[in-house]
Design a protein around this nucleic acid. Structure first.
Lengths: 338, 338
DNA sequence: ACTGGCAGTTGCCCCCGGCGAGTGCCAGCA
DNA sequence: TGCTGGCACTCGCCGGGGGCAACTGCCAGT
């Protein structure tokens, strides 16, 4: 059936183009792949593929290049899984397991992902939604200011400084500390926030205003999830390696990378588990028109965090997907131990 | 005196080259500057300046370009101060004063510096060396692990997780917490670290091993100054704006920016107060051969932190220096309030 | 000490022709 | 109907060459 062969041709075109970065013609295609047909046949198939929008030619006398649509179908239906080598797996594992700290895990993940894929790595800090409260601390500062600290089971410390109307006395602070700790320790952050509201009732009415401010700050601290709003980026130097035809595209990409909001949106949309691929305009970001994002959520947390890589649309999708998936798996495992 | 005019010529060359990004010849120089002499005279001066190593010509039929040495003398002796406009000052002030947080101050400084100079901005997190200990907290985790938290007067929270040989009982932890807090609160971080050593003596010998591990971890936390080892970078997108002749240089620069160690060394060397300029090879970093760093320490802290910008050697030095100095001044002021 | 002029060098730009890669189409064959 | 071989055609790329213009260096003159 000719339909199948056309898809084979498309796959071959994508693979060759990714390997050589040059438009691929019917002849060179046959040199590198054993399709049992003549160049003319390939040409016919190519003409049809072009008509259907999977490939295009930069100029008349050049070979074909996959379009976004071509990459899309390649990723969805044509790419075969390319598992990581044992050495690569080991590298990931040993490098990540040396981490001393949640932050360190993130830093190392970025490095290893960038290294592995030769692309730009993006890692969102882990979500706290599954973590429980380990400790609550209130520290009075000067001028009626108070430092509210929450230590979570994952070893993360969230802090916030608040301004109060008046300086609470030692006794009240002590009482608050005890009650708030009692009400929240061991709870998940979301639940803890609920319990706090109830805890207010136990205080004398005259203390209510000040207690309320503190509790509400604490509650914010618990739910604001500042950590999932942070992102680590690495491997930007790879941008310069993507090829000289990327010189134009490099500035918008750097701009996008500086806008955490953009990155968060991109990673945040990776709702489904397992690796996701967004190609060119599918990123919904103008500056990333010539880039593709391979991302995956990690860890068990539902509304969880994600990581991924950003590379040229002409990337090695199977390899990149495998790398992203592997790192996500290891990172998830590492963080769940805590 | 002809010597003076030669320096005027050099200044004019630097200014023109910075403005146009093109080698400047004797004629175009006279078009833009009122030196009261003929092109031939300028040519003679140029020949001498070239002999002395201040300028060079890319090829015979081209104009002259300043050398590193030329920029150096320009910065040291020829550049006239170019104060910021009132609007710029106001922009810095209002933007920075919106910060809610030490981290936020740093983030905003990076943005404003990058914006102002159209270069890459680098800001080291503030040193803690002048901060005092506000609170010490020990939080037992599972598996004989312990979370050590230090809250400083500047509102920064330093944390560290340590592994112990055995799980200390509640009473010991309580006792430790009290003693360590007593010994350190109100002290500067450096002194506090010293006091800790003395505090060990107060414990029963059988507790010594565990107490020692905890104290030493705490001591590390106090002195390691992790914050000054952190650096925020922004405005990398400006790299792509530096001109197409920079395409070659962009990758090494991005690599250098990813190596925090390199950046720390660069900023750390800016020992003297006031803006410092390091040009090309003076950075001591191979990848930054075509770049120049304008940096300044900020805040009162002696061994303090620094910030600066990284741009092409052909940058607007007076403007950049003014911007860096202004931001450093504001940031220092902001942080000293706490 | 400075100027005007002149010869000399050299990179840049544009044009052009040849080359080669690759295509589309068509007639022929299983 | 689907595949193949062949052929004419289209373009982009590359290298060479000539003209141009920007500068310089030098020298004689004021």
């Amino acid at each position: 059936m000719a339909d199948d062969r056309r898809l084979d041709v498309l796959r071959a075109i994508v693979e060759d183009y990714v390997a050589t970065h040059e438009p691929v013609g019917s002849r060179s295609l046959l040199d590198r792949h054993q399709l049992g047909v003549s160049p003319a046949t390939i040409r016919n198939d190519m003409a049809i593929l072009e008509e259907e929008g999977y490939i295009s030619q930069p100029h008349t006398s050049a070979g074909r290049i996959p379009t976004e649509k071509g990459y899309r179908i390649f990723v969805d239906r044509l790419a075969t899984v390319k598992p990581l080598s044992a050495a690569e797996r080991r590298a990931i594992e040993t490098f990540l397991s040396g981490a001393v700290d949640v932050d360190d895990v993130v830093q190392r993940s970025v490095r290893v992902l960038a290294q592995l894929t030769n692309q730009i790595a993006i890692v969102q800090y882990p979500s706290l939604s599954l973590a429980t409260v380990r400790h609550v601390e209130l520290v009075p500062l000067d001028n009626a200011r108070m430092l509210v600290v929450v230590i979570t089971s994952s070893g993360r410390v969230e802090q916030r400084i608040i301004e109060l109307e008046s300086t609470p006395d030692e006794a009240l602070v002590g009482q608050l500390r005890t009650r708030l700790t009692g009400a929240t320790v061991g709870q998940r952050l979301g639940e803890a926030s609920v319990r706090l509201a109830e805890a207010i009732d136990g205080f004398a009415p005259r203390h209510r205003p000040i207690v309320t401010s503190i509790v509400s700050a604490l509650s914010h601290t618990l739910t604001s999830e500042r950590s999932t709003e942070r992102i680590a980026v690495g491997g930007t130097a790879n941008l310069a390696r993507f090829g000289h035809d990327f010189d134009q595209a490099i500035q918008p990409v750097l701009e996008a990378l500086e806008e955490q909001v953009v990155l968060l949106k991109l990673l945040g949309e990776a709702a489904a588990p397992g690796p996701q691929v967004r190609i060119g305009s599918e990123t919904g970001t103008e500056g990333l028109a010539s880039m593709a994002l391979v991302s995956s959520t990690y860890g068990a947390s539902e509304g969880g965090s994600a990581l991924g890589t950003l590379g040229p649309t002409r990337m090695d999708y199977p390899g990149t997907i495998a790398a992203v998936a592997a790192v996500a798996r290891y990172v998830g495992r590492l963080l769940n131990e805590d």
